[in-house]
Structures are given as C-alpha cells and as structure tokens.
Nucleic acid binder design. Structure first.
Lengths: 226, 226
DNA sequence: TCTTATATTATTGTCGACAATAGACCAAAG
DNA sequence: CTTTGGTCTATTGTCGACAATAATATAAGA
C-alpha cells in the first residue's frame, strides 16, 4: 500500500498555504519566485505549479509578466464569502440531513459535546478556534455527499475563511449562542429534517454575517460566529 | 495601450478548454504532455501551467506520476452541479435584482426579445445554444456584483455546463416555457423584487434538474432548460 | 526643477535535458 | 496455464539556463 505519492509541488503548496493563512507571508506582499524556491529548497518549476494552485484557491493573484501577490482581505470580500456560504452551506445542511449515517450524526453530536466542555473549561473565551476535521461546518459539508460542493467549500472558500479568522483575529463574542445554534442544526440533521436544517444553517450564517457587518461599520474588529 | 499580456499558457489553456468542451478531446482520454505540447507548438512548461488551470476548472483530473485525464461526465455529477447552481444562481438573481442598473436590465430584456424572435424563426428548434455574453444566466451572474460568486459560477461550473450541453446534446424540449420563466425572472429583476427573483430562479433551475432526472431514469438523452 | 526619453536591472516566461516513477512486457517457476 | 518476479520503456516530475517583459534608475532637455 503506497502513500498518495506526494510531489514537491504538493508539499510546498501546502506549506505556503499555511504561511499565507497564518500571516507569515503578509497580505498584499509580492511573491518572488527565485527566493521562494530557494527558501523551500526546490526549483522554480514545481514552485510555479504550487502557485497555480494557490491562484485557484484565490489566495494569491497573478498578473502576467508582473508577478503574484497575496490577496488583500477586505470586509467587503468577507461579506461576499458569507453570502456564498449562506447559500452553499444551507444546501450542505439540507443534503447532510438526507444523507448522513447514524454513525456520522453521532460523531457530530459528540463533537458538539466536546465544544460544550471546552466552553465550560475556558469560560467562553476561545470557542471556534478549531480547524479541519474538528470543525462543525466542515463535517456537515463532508456529509452532504455532493463531491463538487465539498470541493468548492473545502477548497477555495475554506482556506480563505481560515485566513480571515487568523488575521482578523475573528472569534465568537457569543460562543454559547453559537453553540446553541449548532445544537439545533445537529438535531435537525439527526431527525432527518432537511428543510429545517437548511433554514437553521442559513440563519446561523446570516447572523454571523450581520454581526460582521455591524462591527465593520463600527470600525471594530468583527466577531465570527461559526 | 497594451493588450492584456496574453501568455502562451493562457492561449493554449483556452484552446484546450474549447477542445475538451466540444469533445474534440473525448471524455476520459488521457492527456500526453509531450504530444499536447508538440501539437500546440509549445514546451511542456507552459503546457503544465495550462493543465493546472484545467484542473482548477475541474475539466481534467490529475494523479501524481500517472497523468491527467479528461473528466468523465455522469448524470449523477450533472445533478450535483444543478443542486449547486440552484443555490448559487438563486443568490445571483437576488443580488442582481438589488444591484443591476437600468441599463443592464434593459440589455437583459433586449436579449430575451432576441430569444423570442429566434424561437419564432426556428419554430422552437434550437433555443439555448448560445454561450458567453449572450447567455441569460451568464448576464445575471455578472449583474450580481459579487466577484467571488462570478468567479465560481463563471469559472469552474460554467465550462462544465457547456461541456454537458455539447456532449450530451442537451437542448430544451420546451423552449417556450423556459423563455417564459426567463421573462418572469427578468421582470422580477426589473422591479427590484429580490425575493421573487431568487425564488423564480431556483424554481427554474429546479425544473431543469427534475427534467434531467426524469429523462435519466428513462434512459434517454435528457433535456436542459436554461 | 520638472518632464521625458533611455538604459539598466530584476523578475517572469519559456525551453530543453535529466531523474524518478509507473505501467507494460517478458520470462521463469509452480 | 497461471502466477510471480524482474526488466524495460514510456511518461511524468524536476532542474538549470536562456529569452522576454516590466519596473527602476539615470540622464538629457525644456
């Protein structure tokens, strides 16, 4: 059994994604190909391939004969992303309610219980710092059983949301309420109530979006609720 | 005034997209890099860059150390795409109703009038063969004013839908009805009724999806209605 | 001093060659 | 005859060098 044949471009791409998301490579900064290649110990060939993927993820922008720069995050674009998430994750919740197995729903419920404990332990300080598998939204998307939906949400949108969380220090200012919303969504999925699951998820993300908008207008670091 | 600096990878990418969409390069066929490069008169470097973009568009699949193949279209994936389109184009219609200028709505109305004439002339034979700018859905997406939505629908989903139209010979079996639905959506946008525009668009695409599903189960070439 | 044209330099785009991997082919053993 | 093992070839991954473009610096003219 061979492992998934990791290529240089693959590895370096993942590394750079991490650096961009966490701000090691700052927003708007220009990417110098020879230097980046040297730093990662590869040649420009695979590096350019990695950069193509970064471009597909919308983490960098390329201009022919000029170069590539890390995207500049703005609240306007964040709101755009949340509009799309509302539509797509609503769909994902509906499909998850139809397709998720009892095993998967049990694991989801267990995840929320862990979140509950975490809130109690930290007294509501740091909910929603998790990523990847442990993320509530991520699991629901995975449970949608729509591969293309998984690709869109897990590919180009997921890393951008991560990037906003890191660099704008987005964290929930109402963890208990957010967790309650998660619980309701989970319950709807457990009961197989697709319509309700979609509606709850849409409202959940819409709430987060309004929250961001308000704080944006107040010129304060906004909170994120999911 | 210099033109947008077209690069070799850019040009060849567009060429290959066209070949894949129209079936010149058949589904599932493997892409041989040296041969493709020779055919297009470039080296493997820019070719691989072009292939990265094709992969981002989901027109080809790549396996490390094995190679790239054109995707195999299936009705299941087509239905997946329509689920996503229902959600995203519904959103696009809502936003278009909020943001499109009177100039844009007038152009949209004019487009539908042209379609009407075309149906009369061809006696309903060949509506919905247009592409790009002349496409009703395309314009609404453009009018959404959400750049990321435009990228998703216009990037990875648009070409796939084109591909299905070509290769499955998808064309409407009810052009008049589809045009009526387009007219209603256009009217809602003209009136700025965002909720209605979204609802109509979702129903429109949902109808098309049901149509495909029925014909799929009947094991007949399905029709497409948008 | 400001503007404009020119030259220089740094960076990207492109190419051909080499290395590494996977699949095909063939042979030998059971 | 089937299966297993190895070899061989075709294809992909990677690299370094060259060409072309854009940004910068410089110098000349108004």
């Amino acid at each position: 059994m061979s492992q998934p044949a990791i290529t240089l471009a693959n590895r370096v791409c993942a590394d750079i994604v991490q650096d961009i998301v966490t701000g090691v490579i700052p927003q708007g900064s220009k990417l110098n190909e020879p230097e980046l290649a040297r730093v990662h110990g590869i040649s420009r060939g695979p590096l350019r391939e990695a950069m193509s993927r970064l471009e597909a993820m919308r983490l960098i922008r390329r201009i022919p004969n000029v170069g590539a720069s890390v995207v500049n995050l703005s609240y306007e674009e964040l709101l755009e992303i949340y509009q799309i998430r509302e539509a797509l994750e609503g769909l994902a919740a509906r499909l998850a309610a139809q397709h998720m197995s009892s095993q998967e729903t049990m694991a989801l419920r267990q995840l929320l219980n862990q979140h509950q404990q975490h809130i109690v332990q930290t007294e509501g300080q740091s909910y929603f710092q998790q990523e990847g598998d442990v993320d509530f939204h991520y699991r629901i998307v995975q449970g949608s059983n729509n591969q293309r939906l998984i690709n869109i949400l897990g590919g180009e949108l997921y890393h951008l949301v991560r990037m906003y969380r890191y660099q704008f220090s987005l964290s929930s200012n109402r963890p208990e309420q957010a967790l309650q919303e998660h619980n309701k969504i989970c319950a709807a999925i457990e009961e197989g109530d697709a319509e309700l699951a979609e509606w709850l998820m849409r409202r959940h993300i819409s709430n987060a979006r309004r929250n961001i908008k308000q704080r944006m207008q107040a010129d304060v670091t906004p909170a994120i609720d999911n």
